[in-house]
Amino acid sequence: MPNATRHVHLFDAADPRRRELALEDLGGALSRWRLAWALARSDIMHRYRGSVLGPFWLTLSTGIMLASLGILYAKLFRIDVTDYLPYLAVSLILWNLVSALVNDASVCLTGQEGVIRQMPLPYSVHALRSVLRNAVIAAHNLPLIAVVFWVFGLGAGWTLLLAIPGFMLVMAGGFAASLLLGMLCARFRDIPPIIGSVMQIAFFLSAIIWKPEMVGHWEPLLPINPFFAVIEVVRAPIMGTTGSLFTWLAAIGWVGALIAVAWSFFVRFRGRIAFWV
């Protein structure tokens, strides 16, 4: 449905005003946060329609996975479960968030073909919807961390406050990735399977099931991996440390670079999206 607030619409191919239109798109999406929120909520409701537990299936399945993986890997790595399981809980829940953000990003535009080709709507609404949906899912999983900490008698310190900017960084990166990957995957249909494979490899490379100190003198180099960096800036504060300065710089650098690339792509190719999906 057309934009009710924009009463004058001018487009001149000789003077495409791409930056201005891209900014307008972002502004339009932010002013429609209610729409993105309603769509994100309905996505989750549809997924669990008619089920008794509803979205709490997410909580339950994550919980079971944590318990089984935690006990098994503690045994394999010969670490104490009390030491390992809380770490795994935080890592795995954050990884699930990051990987869902990336995987959903690849279909956030192609999946909305019906809307995109029928009504003018800011494209960033679709990116916002994807990010909000994953935030809701994360909200169903994050309390598990509290449960695990309580079971193992761990407390949280002041560093927990640092997890908030870390989390914002993850979400900002998720939004930028949704725009960028959404566009790339609409134009080049070979990219979604590539992303799938990359994420699978990243899971093993990003210190999710193993601890950073296990790689010995390589540990300081880990933040070169963007997935490690953005996860660590949330994980370390939850685990009671601040995380190294290099990790924070790497996380900010990676997310900043992602935003810059996504923005330049968005400015340049926004007008082509309707032809790509």
Binding site: M1, A13, R117, Q118
Partner: peptide
């Protein structure tokens, strides 16, 4: 769809003044 603002023209100029109501696809959205 172009007048509605779905497609961006590759050439030329389009000016639309006024709030648009579109009945292009009843199922969209």
């Amino acid at each position: 769809r172009t007048v509605a603002g779905v497609y961006e023209p590759v050439a030329g100029r389009l000016l639309v003044e006024g709030e648009i109501g579109s009945l292009i696809d009843p199922a969209a959205g």
